[in-house]
């Protein structure tokens, strides 16, 4: 049995809409993510995929349930979540690179500010990361001069500079022009191959199938089905998985 890196127990989350109505987005999600595992989460919009992912580093606070990360219950009281977030890299749909900072500063800000590295060490690390994703020639540019795909590669590198133990990807290619999807997926693929534990919310079915150890199908606030990519894609058991796949795999 491999070691659990992240464990969630019966997560519930709802959002208030216009005061009265509440939208119950997560209805008890219990899941384990092992060290080194690559998990993709697929499912229809509004099914709770992104909310689940954002709960993992507490960008959303679940109402009830537990999240245990590296043996620490981060949903507990008196936990300095900032320390644990340093170990969880996150990549967003809309990149969220810092427009007022140069490419280098985007990467080195957090490691230097949080006392992980000196500026010189961080610069050196940033340059080697940038060359890995083919952005070294852009290191002194501001993000406004980058294309969407370049911004997302920068965002990935920014997260990696903190040397996280897990990477969370929240629809990393959904906001990209089609011709730029490939370059970002290639970077993620290389990362995953190097053994990085990853949780990927995605609509790229082919990609999910190729890189994942396991695929979770989320619908209606629960994990409706979970299994090996081949089983989920070719032999889905749950009727909702079947229906979803029949719509997206034409």
């Amino acid at each position: 049995m491999t070691e659990n890196l992240i464990e969630t127990i019966d997560l519930h989350k709802s959002f208030a809409i216009k005061g009265k109505e509440t939208l119950h987005v997560l209805k008890g999600v219990t899941e384990h993510i092992a060290k080194g595992e690559v998990v993709s989460i697929i499912g229809p919009s509004g099914g709770g995929k992104s909310t689940f992912l954002r709960c993992l580093n507490l960008l959303e606070t679940p109402e009830s349930g537990k999240i245990i990360f590296e043996g620490v219950e981060i949903t507990g009281e008196k936990v300095d979540i900032n320390l644990h977030r340093q170990k969880m890299g996150m990549v967003f749909q809309h990149f969220n690179v810092f427009p007022h900072l140069s490419v280098m500063k985007n990467i080195t800000l957090a490691p230097v500010l949080l006392g992980k590295r000196t500026q010189a060490e961080a610069d050196e690390q940033a340059e080697s990361l940038l060359s890995r994703v083919g952005l070294l020639d852009k290191k002194d540019e501001h993000p406004s001069r980058l294309s969407g795909g370049q911004k997302q590669r920068l965002a990935i590198v920014r997260a990696l500079a903190m040397e996280p133990d897990v990477m969370l990807f929240d629809e990393p290619t959904s906001a990209l022009d089609p011709e730029m999807v490939g370059e970002v997926l290639d970077v993620i693929k290389a990362l995953v191959k190097s053994g990085m534990t990853s949780v990927i919310v995605t609509h790229e079915m082919g990609f999910a199938r190729e890189v994942s150890d396991r695929i979770l199908f989320m619908d209606g606030g629960i994990i409706a089905e979970s299994g090996k990519p081949d089983d989920i894609m070719n032999r889905p058991q749950n009727p909702r998985t079947k229906e979803f796949l029949s719509k997206v795999l034409y």
Binding site: N82, R85, G89, L113
Partner: peptide, 10 residues
């Protein structure tokens, strides 16, 4: 921007 910064541990 806030989310990205917080997710880095700031």
């Amino acid at each position: 921007q806030t989310e990205a910064a917080r997710s880095l541990g700031l």
